[in-house]
Every structure is written in structure tokens, then in C-alpha cells.
Design a protein around this nucleic acid. Structure first.
Lengths: 341, 341
DNA sequence: ATGAAAGCGCTAACAT
DNA sequence: ATGTTAGCGCTTTCAT
């Protein structure tokens, strides 16, 4: 399949009868190479399928042209951020090296991994990692510029969503529809390493909507039956439900409908995120833009890696309400709306 | 924050008054180091926060201890596979380097990136990449062992789901419930680089269920309204709907319910994948296990990278029906079931 | 504009 | 069991 080994730079040099340094310069676009030589070099490089070995190059230059990514990779949100991040990274010829932030790993091992990762990369992105001592230690172990997304550390730059603003928009939407009593649901944080944005939003919603009118309920991870019971219990005597994530909102709607409580006629539901399925199911939500956040954070970390960064920058990315079909006016339907369909 | 530069191996050696090679050996666990020396080395390494530089080490040893990952990172499926893959990779001290398979990129650029990636990694995983000449060229450009997941190439190993078996199980389930006429829906492939498993499954379902009783319909990417119209049109005169992905199934259920066609009383819906939200919404589906597939493929690619691989291995990973609440017997409910709720 | 030489941080012969 | 040496593939002074 590939009988020849990968060509090295010296192989090009030999073939061209020039010094390796000349080839290197030509490929790097140095000014001090004759146009003719450059042309020949590029031509032969194409012909031989040559491509600079980034690890050797990196070792010499003291940079790796790659960026670390610390995230819970099984969350759709991480994938969305990564997708945006990669767009910017690719444009600057950076790759991503992944560190999956899964729980159940010894603290020392985690730090050791971060230390190792820090030698492979010029900077790192940390998505929704729990704030606290461990995050600080990870950042320290990385030893390269870090930008956090959806969480923050006192020592590094961050791209954030404004959870207060999310809560305010959700509360205002429900208030404007006439709702007085709401449930606020959030999913149990499934990873000890993940920052609990959902809980923070729920707290903010409680304040924004009014603590007196809000019934708070954590929906436990695990068995579907238990979750459904918790949802239904929390949904008693309210006309609206705030779900701190769209994923939970979608589950909540299904649970309510199965229990004979049509959405939005009997109860309105609003989520947060703009999940890939939110539009598909007509979910009203406060949208954030994970891809754009990934792009921005990557631009920041690359700038920092190249020594052009501002010292510490906290960017709050905007959010916006997307009113779809799961929220409606208080008392605006009732069961008859479904029975008559 | 980090005033000291990262310690190098020679720094340890100097501090310990031994040769660099001794430190290297001690850290690598070589047999020919006295227990006492090893102990001292490890101690000082901890003390100085030393960690072997993987890029220098890799350059010397001719391997990088990392694995490439070519996938559409915004798909939940890629994240799930990655999550499993990372479990195995981390256990073997491998990292992942990402190459996002997004469309709209020039073919030459893609190949150039693959060539570059191939120098950074010892092997690569390719998830759901469209089969054909480009995939072959990518594999060739990588120049390292590749294992594909959810797609296959004539030249490398693969971990697959058996789309025929998926279709058979779905068809058998619907038949056993008495359904005679079904719609088969699949989402338009949103990426020219992605392999269209959904279409393949739809074809297989058509055969398994019986072409005469199956109405096929692609659901176009894009505006929600258009998609809903396509879904509703396809759903006319059928008592069951096969959706080639769970994501589409969830959209289909929402669309049908909004149109006054309760699921499963009026029409049964079955999906494929076991999406993270499938259990939450009670979706009947043919489950595959992306995490397990990721684990398996990673084990295979690591073995190959270490020269222990079988020449070419095609593994079909098992699938299984999960009957939940969106499928029911033919004629088994009707609108009354909802009106009476 | 090009070449020669040194060296990034590490490992693996080859000594001893 | 430890030290010495060479060199992975590349870039970058420093010469010319």
C-alpha cells in the first residue's frame, strides 16, 4: 500500500541538490529564497507527497501547533463547541488534542495527564469544567495559556454565557404570558468534573421569576421512572416549567404529554441551549451559540499562544430567546384543545 | 504563575548526578536500573513536577502515542464513539488528535491535512466517512493504520453496525404488532463527507418490511416547515413509521402529535441508534452501542499501530431492539385513548 | 541566495 | 547498573 517510507526533508534536498536549510526556507515561505528555487522545491514536494513533519518541526521551534481540549466529549455541547473551535483552529493550522473529562479518575492521574498534555500543545480550551481547586491545578499543570468556556478560573480568560441573563429572559417570557407559578427543573450533574451551569441557571431563574412563585426540583440521574415521577411531582400546580437544559425540557414535555398534560395548553415549557433537536420539537428556549463561542475562544487561545493575548479577558457571549410552540399564554388552552383535534 | 520553565530530563540528571540515560531508563521502567536509583529518580521527578516530553520522546522513538480521529464532531454519535474510544486510549497512554470532517473543503486541502495528521499519530479512526475514492485517498495520505467505524474501505479494518440486521429487527417488530403499511423516513445527508448510513438502513428496511407496503421519503435538511410537511405527507395512510435515525424519529413524533395524530395510538414510530434522549422520550428503537464500538475500534487501531494487528478485520457490532412507548399494536388505540386522558 | 553546523529533548545502542 | 554517544527530522543562527 505504502511501500516507500515517508519522504523527509533531506530526501527533497538530495533530489534537488540543495541544502536542507534551503528546502526548509522555501517551504516556510522565507523571503531569502530565489523564486526559481522556491518553485522547484514546491514542485518536487508535491510530486513526492512531502509534508513537513509537525512533531520534528515543533520540537525545534518550541511550539506544537496544536491546542488541548478538555471536555466531556459525550455531551452534544462539547461537540458543538469543538466544531466551531476547529473551524478557527484549522484556518491557523492548529490541531486539537483531546482530554476527555470523565469522572472516576484519580486526581493525581488527572494532573499528570494535564502536565503531559501541556507538553503536546501550545494552549488549551476547557469546556464546562467544575470551578475550584482542581481546575486551578489542571491549569497550572498544563502550563500553557488556557481559555475556559462556560466556566471560569481567576487566572485565565473565559468565554461565558450569562446565566443571569438567560434566567431573566426566560422569566420575562413566562411572565409576559401571564404565568405566576412555575417549576424550575435541573438535571443532576452527571460528572464530578463538569461545572454545573444548570444549577446556576436554576438559581438565577428562581430569583428572576420570584422565589415565592417557583418550585425547584432536581431531576436525578438514572432510571427513567424515577425521573418521570420527579418531573410530574414538580409540575403539580404550576402553569409553566423552566428546564435548565433543553435535553431535560424535551424529556419533560414527553413526560407531561404521556401523563395527559398537553404542552403548551395545560403547561408551558421553556428550555435553555437551543439543542440540535429544539427546533425539531418546537421547543421554546433561551438559545446560546456554542459554535460561535468555540470560535471565539479558539481565536483567543491562539493569540495567547503566540504571545499576543490580552492579560485576562472575560467575554460574555450573548443569548437570545427563541419562542416556539411549547410556551403559550396562561390558561390559554386547556385539555379541550387536544380532545378537539 | 509559572516562573520556572518546564524541567527537562537533563535537569533531573544534573540534580541526581546521574546520566540522562539512567533517568530515562528509570522513568521508562527498564529492568536494568537499581531499585535505589529508580526510587530516587521517581522521587525527584515528582518533586520537580517532571513529566516526559511526549513530542521529543516520540520523535526519537518513531511513535507519537496518539491516534487521529476523523469525524463530524457536531454529531452526538461522534461524541459517543469518542468517549468510548478515549477510555481505551487513555488506558494505553494514547491521546486523540481531531480532524473535523466538515464539508466545503477542497479535496487537496483535505488530503494535505490527512498527510499532516498522519505524521502526528500512530493510527487513526474514521467515523462514518463516505465510502469512495476520497476515503481511500485519505487513508493513503494518513499512511498509518486506520480503523473505520460505521463505514468501510477495502483496505483497512472496520467496526460496523449491520444495517440489514437493524432493518430486519425494526421490520419484525412492526410486523409482530400487526402493521402492514409503513413509511420509511431518512434525513437528507447534511455532509458530503459523511457516509449515509441512514439511507442504507432505509433501503434495507424497505426490503425487510416489503417494498409494496413501504412508502419511502427523504426529509430534506433545512427549514422546519418543509420538513414537517414532508413528514406529514409521508405519514398518510400508514400505521407505522420507520425513522432511520432517532433524531428524525423524535422530530417525527413531535410533528405527528402537533398534527393531532397521537403516538403510538394512531401511528407507531420506531427509530435507530438509541440516542441520548431516546429513553427520555420513550422512543422504541434499534439500539447500537457507539461507545462500545469506539472502545473496540481503538483497541484494534492500537494493536495495529504496535504492529500486532490482524491484516484486516471486519467486526459487525451487535444491535438490539428496545421496545418503549412509541410503538404499539395496529389499531390498538385510536384518538379516544387521548381524549379520554 | 545558499550552505554548514548546532541543537530542540529525548532514547537506544554500545560501551564499561 | 550506569555512562557515552549518536541521532530522530527539522529550523535557525552564522557564515559565505
Amino acid at each position: 500500500m505504502r511501500p516507500q517510507p515517508r519522504p523527509r526533508l533531506v530526501d527533497l534536498a538530495d533530489r534537488l541538490n540543495v541544502a536542507p536549510s534551503t528546502v526548509s526556507r522555501a517551504l516556510a515561505g522565507s523571503k531569502s529564497v530565489s523564486a526559481a528555487t522556491r518553485k522547484r522545491v514546491i514542485e518536487v514536494a508535491r510530486d513526492m507527497g512531502y509534508s513537513v513533519n509537525p512533531v520534528a518541526s515543533g520540537l525545534k521551534r518550541g511550539q506544537t501547533s496544536s491546542i488541548g481540549l478538555i471536555a466531556v466529549m459525550s455531551y452534544w455541547y462539547s461537540g458543538a463547541v469543538t466544531s466551531g473551535a476547529d473551524r478557527v483552529a484549522a484556518a491557523h493550522d492548529y490541531d486539537f488534542v483531546v482530554m476527555n473529562a470523565v469522572g472516576g479518575i484519580d486526581r493525581e492521574v488527572l494532573i499528570q495527564r494535564a502536565r503531559r498534555l501541556g507538553q503536546r500543545v501550545d494552549g488549551a480550551l476547557a469546556i464546562d469544567i467544575r470551578e475550584g481547586e482542581l481546575l486551578e491545578d489542571l491549569i497550572d499543570a498544563l502550563g500553557v495559556p488556557v481559555v475556559t468556556i462556560g466556566c471560569q478560573s481567576p487566572s485565565v480568560s473565559a468565554v461565558l454565557v450569562d446565566n443571569e441573563e438567560i434566567a431573566r429572559q426566560a422569566a420575562a417570557h413566562l411572565h409576559s404570558l401571564g404565568h405566576q407559578r412555575a417549576a424550575a427543573l435541573w438535571p443532576q450533574n452527571p460528572s464530578p468534573l463538569a461545572y454545573d451551569n444548570a444549577l446556576v441557571r436554576t438559581d438565577a431563574f428562581t430569583t428572576a421569576f420570584g422565589a415565592a412563585g417557583t418550585r425547584r426540583q432536581m431531576i436525578p440521574a438514572g432510571a427513567s421512572g424515577t425521573r418521570r415521577a420527579a418531573i410530574l411531582e414538580a409540575a403539580t400546580d404550576v402553569s409553566a416549567i423552566f428546564c435548565a437544559t433543553d435535553a431535560l425540557a424535551i424529556e419533560t414535555i414527553a413526560t407531561l404529554r404521556d401523563a395527559g398534560r398537553p404542552v403548551p395548553d395545560d403547561v408551558s415549557v421553556i428550555g435553555v441551549d437551543d439543542h440540535p433537536l429544539a427546533e425539531a420539537v418546537g421547543l421554546t428556549t433561551v438559545a446560546q451559540e456554542p459554535e460561535a463561542m468555540g470560535e471565539l475562544a479558539t481565536a483567543m487561545v491562539i493569540a495567547a499562544a503566540q504571545g499576543q493575548g490580552a492579560p485576562r479577558e472575560i467575554v460574555e457571549h450573548s443569548v437570545h430567546l427563541v419562542a416556539r410552540r411549547t410556551s403559550g399564554p396562561y390558561g390559554g388552552g386547556g385539555l379541550s384543545a387536544v380532545a378537539g383535534a
